[in-house]
Nucleic acid binder design. Structure first.
Lengths: 157, 157
DNA sequence: GCATAGTGGACAACGTGGTTGTCCTCCACT
DNA sequence: AGTGGAGGACAACCACGTTGTCCACTATGC
């Protein structure tokens, strides 16, 4: 096979999609429907300090407008609240709600569980190698999440 | 770190994106601008027998409408031509042009070269393990390519 | 031979998650 | 006080999917 390079790329995309699709389904099963990993990741970023739209945009390497849309979605689903910043009247400070924290915890557990089960399947040392090899490939780049659509699909069972 | 599961997913996405972005840039540098890996993959599928919109849709696990749009893009860029099928007057038979073949060859070479260089970086046996571990995760699922936007960005250098 | 079911394809409307571009408010600095 | 820059909102647009509908044609069954 001479498509090995392309296949490899597809394999990575496939791996991500499998994980993301399962996580979406599992999250839905646990009561957080209509949530996709983007939301989880964004929430994570907000929690770890990206408390404004502009800042969130920077962290996720998307425009502030895109970040604002994500935030609007999160707000609508009650994962975050926005309140005017008393110190800077331009800003709307973001705050993760309890509901958001719960979702975050669920997401974390789901992803960790998937990792664990894969580890069981292929072996701990192989997984370690996979991770470090991927890290070598990806380097220090921030992983951008601007991938509309990649995750909004049903499992194909 | 307790985000290891989520990080792992992100790592895969990141790996894919690094590969895809580089391929896009490299393809552009070689005269095929405005081509993204989707096009390469679709062309590949057409070449290997998916010679109609419906069939292409089936192979790529998208609707025939989506496939038709991809085909329209490929046709516009002169990578394929559509001509009426003399035996079945409903069909428009697809044919990859020389220009398309050239792009395919370039794409292949680029992906293979990236694979080779990664192999050099992490070692051949590690790469083999990565591939088989990923294959174990992905399973027999067809990797869907319905990932709008994931690849149309500039490298961040 | 002919009605009916199914397939290929086109068109339109829509959804999602991005992008630019513009504008306004407010902060910060000279 | 005036000016530059940051935060944010709004609108238009793009890419790439999705449904839904419709038509032309093929294939099948009586």
């Amino acid at each position: 096979m001479s498509r090995s390079g392309a296949d490899l790329a597809l394999l990575m995309l496939g791996g991500f999609r499998v994980l993301a699709d399962r996580a979406t389904a599992e999250l839905a099963a646990r009561g957080h429907d209509d949530v996709r990993p983007v939301h989880d990741f964004a929430l994570q970023a907000i929690l770890s300090g990206a408390d404004s739209a502009s800042e969130l945009g920077r962290r996720m390497s998307v425009t502030k407008q895109a970040a604002a849309k994500t935030i609007a979605a999160l707000e609508e689903r009650r994962y975050v609240v926005r309140e005017p910043d008393p110190d800077d009247r331009r800003r709307m400070r973001l705050q993760v709600t309890d509901h958001g924290l719960a979702m975050l915890r669920e997401g974390e557990a789901i992803f960790d569980e998937m990792r664990r089960s894969w580890e069981e399947q292929v072996g701990a040392d192989v997984l370690r190698e996979v991770e470090s090899a991927l890290r070598a490939l990806v380097g220090d780049r921030t992983v951008r999440l601007d991938s509309p659509g990649w995750v909004g699909h049903e499992l194909e069972s």
